[in-house]
């Protein structure tokens, strides 16, 4: 999948980054060089593999006591 200039403009818009017109073509080139190198991930068999979303195993998100606190005051967390 190659990134064309139209895609660069669209992604820059999504990222809220103004990209001067003269930077669009060079940026497409830079991004394509990086994405071409990343394409090798397609060689890996990932059939049936659970995506890894956290480096912490077996720990669920801690819940605090359901009591009134000072909210945003860090020392009261």
């Amino acid at each position: 999948m190659s990134i064309d200039e139209k895609t660069v403009r669209r992604v820059a818009k999504l990222a809220r980054l103004s990209l001067p017109e003269e930077r669009v073509a060079p940026m497409a080139g830079e991004l394509n060089a990086i994405m071409a190198w990343i394409e090798q991930l397609n060689e890996v068999d990932v059939e049936g593999v659970e995506p890894m979303t956290s480096a912490v195993e077996g720990l669920s998100l801690p819940m605090r006591e359901d009591v009134v606190t000072d909210g945003e005051t860090p020392s009261a967390c």
Binding site: I3, T7, V11, L14, A15, L17, I34, M35
Partner: peptide, 23 residues
């Protein structure tokens, strides 16, 4: 930021981000 936005954008999420998490 542009790479990150691209790989998370509609239509590319599964091909890139999800695959990378599986790798």
């Amino acid at each position: 930021i542009l790479i990150g936005t691209y790989v998370l954008s509609a239509g590319y999420y599964d091909a890139y981000y999800l695959r990378a998490q599986k790798v």
